[in-house]
Simulated assay, not measured.
Amino acid sequence: MENRQVAVPPTLSRVPRMRAVTFADITGSLKDGWADFKAFPFYGLAFGGVYAAGGLLILYIVTRIGAPWMIIPLAIGFPLIAPFVAVGLYEISRRRAAGEPVTREAVFAHVFRQRERQLGWMAFVVLFIFWIWIYQVRLLLALFLGFKSFSSFQAFAHIMTTTSEGWGFLIVGTIVGAALATALFSVTVVAMPMLMERDIDFVSAMIASVQAVVKSPVSMLGFGALIGALTIVALVPAFLGLIVVLPILGHATWRLYERMSETEAA
């Protein structure tokens, strides 16, 4: 049997300079992301399907263990790890923009290659923030509602929306959650695609990501807010909206990274 060699793109070894972006860049990146999804829908639906299946598994587990109140924090926090699945989407967009062939072998080889590189260390950062999110939800529940148990999701929702304690929990939880989401977005939005493209350390990538957000705070945080809003909407139909929304956002993130990073030699 003939051995097939999968071409691996060369990696750059320097942190690129990041330029400021505008809302026009955000809009253009979303349009390009949609075009990438339409060009190769199979990959997007497959990667998005992983998250939809994961969301349904979460729903099943919290129902079986009798903790229906955990559905909301877990559902909102679960997409935080989406950038890891998005690596394959980044590679598809990169290849399409460069005019390189997009094949299953090339895409999945590049995804599996990341286990030997710095992207794996980002997992600890993301999962740590995810753990903080879950911990602060439990802490706020204890502070506002004591140690009450909820027999159903309906009972939990009723208390959240009809009592002063519930409203206090929702308001403070939203503020804390927004702060955590902003921090996570700032350290990953550029770092994830940069680590896929370049052979650099994850700390440098996170610093560059934060600097990129600081350089264009309004447009970048607007992009982050859009990601959050679309993700929440995608959760409503039993997580099924993630099948389409996450791939488009993944492609768009890579396209925005392309617009922000200045081309330089390796």
Rank of each mutant, 00 (worst) to 15 (best):
W121Q: 02
W121K: 02
W133V: 12
A123I: 10
S152R: 04
F150S: 02
M160R: 15
R117L: 09
T163R: 00
V107F: 09
G120L: 06
R113I: 00
A155P: 03
S149Y: 12
A142W: 09
L141R: 13
W121R: 03
M160Y: 10
G146Q: 06
T163C: 04
I159M: 08
Q154I: 11
E116P: 03
R115M: 11
F108K: 01
F108R: 02
W121H: 03
S151E: 10
R138C: 14
M160G: 05
A155I: 02
S152Q: 04
A142D: 14
F128E: 01
T163M: 04
F112P: 06
F144K: 01
A109R: 01
T163N: 00
T162K: 04
V125L: 06
V137I: 14
Q118L: 01
T162R: 04
V125A: 03
S149T: 13
A157V: 15
A157I: 12
A142T: 14
F108C: 07
M122Y: 00
M122C: 00
W133F: 14
A109Y: 06
F124L: 03
R138Q: 12
M160H: 10
E116Y: 14
F150M: 05
S152A: 03
Q136Y: 15
A157F: 15
I134K: 10
F124D: 02
L127Q: 00
A142K: 13
Q114C: 07
S149P: 06
I132K: 14
R113Q: 15
F108A: 07
A157N: 07
R138P: 05
L139N: 14
M122R: 03
F150E: 04
Q114H: 06
Y135N: 09
V137W: 13
G146N: 07
L145Q: 08
A106L: 05
S149N: 05
R113H: 07
A155D: 03
L145R: 01
Q118K: 08
F156Q: 07
T162N: 05
L139D: 11
R138K: 09
I129H: 00
F156E: 01
F124N: 00
F128C: 02
V111Q: 00
I159E: 15
L127C: 05
W133D: 11
A123Y: 01
F128T: 04
Q118S: 11
T163Q: 03
I134R: 13
A109Q: 05
Q154L: 08
L145I: 03
R117D: 01
F128A: 04
